[in-house]
Amino acid sequence: MGIFSKIKNYITGGAAEVAVVFENDLVRPEDKLRLFVTASAKDDCKIKKVYLHIKCEETYKKRETTTTTDSNGNTTTTSRDVTKYYSHFTKELVLAEDILLRKDSEEKWLAEFEIPVDALPSFKGKDCHMTWKVFAGLDMPGNDPDSGWVSFYVQKKVDYTVEQM
């Protein structure tokens, strides 16, 4: 592979293709999420670590108000609903360290993670969501090859009371 290709891979993270394969993408608290991180090398990859980020993220709308004043001193106030995100849970698992993955070879690593008992279940509304997702990456010089964020689902019945409403 030429020097330009190596530079391109350094910038784009294209030295390997990384994917996440779930054994089961629907889990309950206290169950184990089991998945494989797979990497297919397009070039020799000297990997410091193979990592998996796990995140539970709330998506919601927040009203934001902006006030502007023009050159004549007239004030205008505008409001709009902006999409916001809040992380309820984040964790990094290191699946392997100091690996050399040769060009055209493939490797896979098993990741297991127990969903916390107090985890919030997944929810999909109209503007608001609770999303669980994973992101696998290879820690390498330059841009890390990664899988992007991939969703899985936590299923759970929460016992609310009328007094909480």
Partner: peptide, 13 residues
């Protein structure tokens, strides 16, 4: 139908 849900910044009631 969706269940009751209380998150930090949104609710479903």
């Amino acid at each position: 139908v969706p269940p009751t849900y209380l998150a930090k910044y949104f609710s479903v009631k």
